[in-house]
Simulated assay, not measured.
Amino acid sequence: MTMLTGQIPLVPPRGEDGPGERIRVTALGGGHGLSASLSALRRLTPDITAVVTVADDGGSSGRLRAEFDVLPPGDLRMALAALCDDSDWGRTWRDVMQHRFQGRGAVPSSLENHALGNLLIVTLWELLGDPVDGLKWAGALLGARGTVLPMSTTPLAIQGTVLSESASGELTRTVVRGQANLAHASHLGTIQAVELEPQDAPACREALEAIELADWVILGPGSWYTSVLPHVLLPETRRALEATTARRLLTMNLNTKTRETPGMSAADHLRVFKRYAPDLRIDAVVADPGAVDDVEAFRAAAAELGAVCFFDKVGTASGRAVHSPLRLANAYQDVFTSFMNRESGSEEP
C-alpha cells in the first residue's frame, strides 16, 4: 500500500477550474468547533484544508495515544466526518466514522467507547507508516470534500496555569497538565496561561503549505484554550499565519462562558488571543450578536487585532449553543463577498 502514497493529490493546484472561480480555505481548530466550520465551508468550496490540534489525551483518543504511541485520532476523525457530503455515501460513512462501540455482553469489551473512525485511522497509520498519508487515504475512502492534516506529526501535550482564590482571599496558582484536565479546570479557578509541550515541536509541513497557499485562513470556533490557541502556541504555525498573504478570519463561540472560560466576555476572548499572537493580524471576526454582551468593547478588541466585525445569527434555531452549518456558511459567504468587493473597489466591508 505504501507504493500508492502520493496518488491522492494533497493540495490541488490553485485555480485548476479557472482563476477566481474557487476560494481556497484553510481552517484551523479542533473538536466540535472545527467540525462546525468545516460543515459550513464544504457548502461553499471544495478547496478546504483542515489543520487539527493533536493535544487531546482523553477518551478513546487518549487510550489509543497511550497504547499505540500515535497522534490522538479523535479530532482528526471529526474533521473527516464533517467533510462528508450529504449524499447517501457521505452520510453513511460519516455515521460509520462516528459510531462508538457499546458492549452488551457479559464480558467487558476492550472496544468500549472507541469510535470506529479512530480505529480506522490508526490502522491506516500502522499500514502506511505516515500520519499524513493515512489521513489522505481515509479522506479518499469517505469522499471527503477537502483534506485533513494534523497541526504537528508529533503528539503534543498542553498545560495551563490556573489561578484560584481561597475563602480568605489568598491566591494560588496550580499547573494543570493535559487537555482533558484543562478543559474541566474551571472548578479550580481561572486559566491564566497555557503552553504546549514540547514547545518547539515541528509543525506539519503540509499544514504550513496550506496556510501559505490559502485565500482565507479561518480560526475557531472551539474551546478557546485547548482548540483555538494551540495553533498560535506552535511557533512555526504562528509564523506561517503571520506571513501568509491569505485573509484571516476568527469565528467566535456562541457561548463565551464555558468550562474553560468562565466569566470571560467575547472581548476578553479577543484580548487573550492577541496576548498569545501579538503580531498576527486578523482581517475579520464573525460573531453571533447574542454572544456579544458589550458590542463597543468587542469592536475595540477586534480593532486591536486589525479586524472588522461581522455580526450574523449563526446558531441553530433551537437556541442551543450550536452553530448552524447553513447560517455559518452564509456568514462566511458574506465576509468573502464583502472583502472581494472591497478589493475590487466597489464596497467597504
Rank of each mutant, 00 (worst) to 15 (best):
T237M: 03
D57L: 00
I48N: 06
D334C: 02
P262V: 13
V285A: 00
S35A: 08
F339R: 00
A307L: 07
P278C: 11
Q192L: 10
R177G: 11
P221E: 05
E197N: 08
A167P: 12
T256R: 02
I121C: 01
A240I: 12
F273T: 01
E209Y: 04
Q102A: 05
T153K: 06
R342Y: 12
E348C: 00
P278Q: 07
Q333D: 11
F310D: 00
S166M: 03
G160F: 08
Q199G: 05
A81Y: 14
L10P: 08
G134A: 14
P131L: 03
C309Y: 15
L213I: 14
G29I: 03
R65P: 04
R145D: 01
L208K: 11
L182E: 06
A138S: 10
R177H: 15
G18F: 14
I8R: 02
H99R: 08
M3E: 07
L250A: 05
G103E: 02
V148T: 04
R145A: 00
N255V: 10
P278T: 14
P108K: 02
M1I: 13
V54H: 05
L188M: 14
S338W: 04
A240T: 15
T244E: 02
L135M: 02
G319C: 05
F310L: 01
S186H: 15
R65E: 09
A266W: 13
A214G: 07
A300L: 04
R100H: 08
L83Q: 04
V52S: 02
G345P: 07
M1F: 13
M97H: 10
E197S: 09
D294Y: 06
K274E: 08
Q192G: 07
L44E: 01
D95V: 03
Q192N: 12
R238T: 10
K274T: 13
R177N: 15
